[in-house]
Simulated scan of single mutants.
Amino acid sequence: MSGLRGRLAPVFLFVCAVVLGMSATACSGGDEGRAKAPPFDGAQVLRQASAAMANLKSVGFTVTTEDKPPVAVRGGDIKLLRAGDAEGTLTIVQSGQSVEMKIVAVGQSVYIKGVTGGWRQVPKALASSLYDPSAVLDPNRGISKLLSSVTGVKAEGREKADGKDSYRVGVTLPKAAIEGLIPGIRSDVRGQVWVSSSDHKLIKVRGEIPPLAEGGEKGSVVITFTEFDHPYTIKAPV
Rank of each mutant, 00 (worst) to 15 (best):
S2I: 15
R5E: 15
R7H: 05
R7E: 04
V11W: 13
V11F: 09
L13T: 04
V15L: 12
A17C: 08
L20Y: 04
M22R: 12
T25I: 07
T25Y: 08
D31E: 13
K36I: 14
P38C: 10
P38V: 08
P39I: 14
D41S: 10
G42C: 11
L46S: 00
A49T: 01
A49W: 01
A51K: 15
K57N: 11
K57S: 13
K57M: 13
S58H: 07
S58V: 14
V59T: 15
T62W: 07
T64K: 09
T65Q: 12
T65A: 10
E66N: 08
D67Y: 14
P70K: 09
P70S: 14
V71T: 05
R74I: 02
G76A: 09
G76P: 06
G76T: 08
G76F: 08
G84C: 07
G84F: 03
G84E: 04
T91M: 08
I92D: 06
V93E: 10
S95K: 14
S95Y: 08
S95G: 12
V99Y: 05
V99I: 09
E100M: 11
K102S: 09
I103C: 09
V104C: 11
A105Y: 02
V106G: 06
Q108S: 03
V110N: 02
K113N: 05
T116A: 05
G118S: 03
R120V: 00
P123R: 08
A125C: 12
A125W: 08
S128N: 11
S129T: 15
S129N: 15
Y131L: 06
D132Y: 05
A135W: 14
L137A: 07
P139Y: 07
I143T: 02
S144Y: 02
S148E: 05
V150G: 00
V153K: 06
D162W: 07
D162Q: 10
D162S: 15
K164Y: 03
K164W: 01
V169Y: 00
T172N: 01
K175S: 10
A176T: 09
I178H: 05
G180H: 09
G180V: 04
L181E: 06
L181C: 08
I182K: 02
I182T: 06
G184T: 01
D188P: 05
G191M: 11
G191C: 10
G191R: 13
S196Y: 04
H200F: 15
V205P: 07
V205K: 09
E208G: 00
I209N: 03
P210N: 14
L212H: 15
K218R: 09
G219K: 05
G219R: 05
S220G: 04
S220Y: 02
V221I: 09
V222Y: 04
F225M: 03
D229Q: 04
H230W: 13
P231N: 15
I234M: 04
K235S: 15
